[in-house]
C-alpha cells in the first residue's frame, strides 16, 4: 500500500476517534493491538488471508477485541480488515498514534518490557525519557516476552536498550 493511502486511513481513523471523543483510549488500544498483530503469525495470517471472507475476518476481530477494547477501536480495526488492508494495519495504526501524539505536541516513546509496568513505573519512565531526550513523550508500553528482562525504549530514531535480550545477543556474538 502506498504511503498516501496509509496516511489516508490513519487520518480517517484519527478523525473518527477524535469525533467519538475517545482518541486517547482508542489510540492506546490500537497501538497494543498493532503490537500483538506483529508478534502473532496466526493472527496476521488470519486477518490477511484473502481466502477467508471479509465478514469472517471481521468476526475474528470482534471476537478478539469484543469486551476488551472500546467499541470504536473494535469497529475501526474491523473496518480496516474488512477493506482488505489488514496487512497494513500496524503501519496505519503507527501513523495514527504519531498523528495523535503530534496533535498533543508529543513524541511517541515505544517501551518494550518483558513484564507489565505499573502506573508509577510508567510515569517515572516517561519522566526519565523526557529528561534524557528533552522531548515530551507519549509513552506506549508493549509487553514483549522476547525482551526477557529490562526495557527497550524507542523515541523517534533514538533507541535506549537496557534489555537482557540484547545483552544475551552480545554474549552470543562473543561466543
Amino acid at each position: 500500500m502506498s504511503d498516501n493511502r496509509i496516511e489516508g486511513y490513519a487520518r480517517a481513523l484519527f478523525e473518527i476517534a477524535r469525533a467519538e471523543g475517545t482518541l486517547d483510549e482508542v489510540e492506546d488500544e490500537l497501538f497494543r493491538f498493532a503490537r500483538s498483530y506483529e508478534s502473532s503469525d496466526a493472527l496476521r495470517n488470519a486477518l490477511t488471508d484473502e481466502q477467508i471472507p471479509a465478514a469472517k475476518r471481521q468476526a475474528i476481530v470482534e471476537d478478539l477485541l469484543g469486551g476488551k477494547a472500546t467499541g470504536t477501536t473494535t469497529q475501526l480495526v474491523s473496518m480496516v480488515v474488512g477493506s482488505g488492508r489488514g496487512r497494513d494495519l500496524p503501519a496505519i495504526i503507527d501513523k495514527l498514534v504519531a498523528r495523535a501524539s503530534s496533535a498533543k505536541n508529543l513524541e511517541v516513546a515505544e517501551v518494550r518490557t518483558a513484564v507489565p509496568l505499573t502506573s508509577d513505573q510508567q510515569a517515572r519512565l516517561a519522566a526519565a525519557i523526557v529528561n534524557a531526550t528533552g522531548k515530551q513523550v507519549n509513552l506506549k508500553v508493549v509487553v514483549d516476552p522476547s525482551v526477557i528482562g529490562g526495557v527497550v525504549a524507542t523515541v523517534g530514531d533514538t533507541v535506549i536498550d537496557g534489555s537482557v535480550r540484547t545483552r544475551i545477543d552480545q554474549l552470543k556474538s562473543r561466543l
Binding site: A114, R124, L125, A127, A128, I148, G149, G150, V164
Partner: peptide
C-alpha cells in the same frame, strides 16, 4: 533466573539510568 524481583530491579535500574 529472572524472577519477578529481578525483572523489577532491571526496570528500576533502567529508569534510574535513563533518568
Amino acid at each position: 533466573s529472572l524472577d519477578d524481583a529481578t525483572q523489577q530491579e532491571l526496570i528500576e535500574n533502567f529508569i534510574a539510568r535513563v533518568g
